[in-house]
Each structure stands twice: as structure tokens, then as C-alpha cells.
Amino acid sequence: MIEENCRNCKEVISGNFCPNCGQRRFKRINRGYVIEEIQDIFVDVNKGFFYSLLKILRNPGKTAREYMDGNRVDHYKPIALAFVLGGISIFVSTSVLNLDEIMKSFSEQQHINSKLMSDIFTIISSYYAILMILLLPIFAFITRIPFKKQGHNYYEHIVMNSYVVSYYTLMSILVMYPILFLFRQNPEKMMLVSQGSFLILPLILVWFFKGFYNHIPLKKIIIKILGVLALTLLAYILAIIVSTVAFVLYGMFVDKGVLEYAKPK
């Protein structure tokens, strides 16, 4: 086996693991790596959970770059981290804030008469953290398009976006949820804070990718992020059109009851 230097401590590695710090020999992130990490969520707990949280809070883009370049021994695996933080977010939003019940009440106050629309509104507001994780494959596809020339593959972009989602979820837990708790008796203000938090995402994306690709000028990063936002909007519109057509066809030819579910009362 060819010798190489450890990406974490620079010790010479002749086997699969560094004899000094124990880190595995560097392996580029690919499809097999992502599948292995998802499996590890359920069978392994990495020791670097709080270390990774602190690193992400300081600079998520730089942290992701370190991990991508092979310095992984002290880090909690990013996809697993996104799932753990997503679980914490759902627990706080539903068990502490009772956000799902509050959003249902808000829907009634706003006269959202369709049960389908009310349920969609409640799910998005209360379980957005898990929805973002489930959409990671789409986010990765979108961010790879403007940054394709940088040479990172699709699965590496899944890991990048895991860090973005983790950072956003972590800031929601630390900042947004305490504010929502203060306004828990006022659904209108809670909704305003919740919706306003999504407006911060473009800034987070600029900060993240500037930290990750620190050799790219800020102006070019902003232009690329605008491209990401445009592609995201396009994907959203296409998803709405496709899902609406599929829903109507299902209601017309399979189960007419679903049309009643969507019909205003």
C-alpha cells in the first residue's frame, strides 16, 4: 500500500489508519461514502459532536472544507449531525413550543378553510428541519451547478449542504426558538419570526461558500448564490406544478375523496 501523510496530524500512513491519531486513510467523498455514513447514523456515535457544533458556529464553510479535505477524526459526521439537530429541533418545536398546535390555530384565524392547505402549512412550520434534510439530494444537485468548476462531486455537495442545514437548524434552536417562546401567546408574531428566519438563508449560503471556497472573490460567490436561489425557485415552481397535477389526477381516477380533502369548506 502506498504511503501518504495523515490529513489530520501529518504522520506517515502505511496502512488504513494513522498510527499516531487513528484517523482513517484519506478517501474522497463519493456515493459509497455517503451510504456508509447514513448507515453509521444508526449503529455508531462519533465522539466529536460538541466539537463539531463549536466549529460550525465559528465558521461552517471552513469546517466543511476541513472535513472534505480529510481532517475528520475529531468531527461528528455531517449527515448524522444534521439528523441529530433535526430531531432536537422537532422535539423543541412540538413538545416545548407546541408549534404544531399553534400553527393550526393560526390557520383557523387566517380562515385557511382547506384542510389540505392547513395541514401543509402546519407541517412546513413545525417540521421544516426534517424536510430540509429530506431535500438534501435536491439541494446538492442545485448547488453543484454553479460551483461545478470547483471539482467537487454530487455526493460532496450533499455533505456541504448537510453543514448548511446543520448550521441553520442550530441557529434556529439557539436564537429563533427562544424568541418564538416569548411570543407563544401571539401566533401572528410567531409566524412573522418563523418566516423571517428563512430570509437569512441567502446570507448563510454566501458566508458558507465564501468560507468553503475562500479563493473565490466575494462578488463571484454572491453571483453564484443568486444562481442557486434562482434554481431553487425554479425547482419549487416545478414541484408545485407536478404535485398539483398528480394530486388532481389521483383524485379524478383513483380516490375522489382526496379532492374533498383539498376543497375549501
Rank of each mutant, 00 (worst) to 15 (best):
T94S: 11
M176I: 12
P178F: 05
I158E: 00
L174M: 10
V96R: 11
L116E: 10
K115T: 10
H157T: 06
S126E: 03
L135M: 01
Q185K: 14
F121N: 13
H111G: 09
I142T: 08
S89Q: 07
S114V: 07
F91D: 11
N161V: 06
L180I: 07
I112Q: 03
P178R: 13
Y177Q: 04
V165P: 07
V164E: 12
M176A: 12
I138E: 02
K115P: 06
V92H: 04
I88P: 04
M103N: 11
L131H: 12
N153W: 14
L134H: 09
N186T: 05
L180T: 00
R144P: 03
N153V: 07
I158Y: 01
M176V: 13
H111D: 15
V165L: 01
N161E: 11
E108K: 14
F147W: 14
S114Q: 01
I112W: 02
D100Y: 15
I102Q: 01
S126H: 05
T169K: 08
N113I: 07
L180A: 10
I142H: 02
E101M: 09
T143C: 01
I138Q: 02
M132K: 03
I142P: 03
F121M: 13
S125C: 09
G87M: 14
I179P: 04
V84L: 15
Y127I: 05
S95G: 07
S89D: 01
S89C: 10
R144H: 14
L170Q: 03
V159T: 12
R144M: 15
S166M: 02
I142A: 00
I88L: 15
F139M: 09
Q185N: 15
I88M: 14
Y127A: 11
I102R: 07
M160K: 10
Q110I: 02
L97K: 11
V164C: 09
I173T: 04
S107Y: 08
M117N: 08
M103H: 11
M103P: 00
N98K: 12
T122P: 02
I88H: 05
M171S: 11
I120N: 00
K104W: 15
Q109T: 08
S162F: 05
Y167V: 06
K104E: 13
P137Q: 12
K148E: 04
D100S: 13
S125I: 08
Y168G: 06
F106T: 01
F147A: 10
Q185L: 11
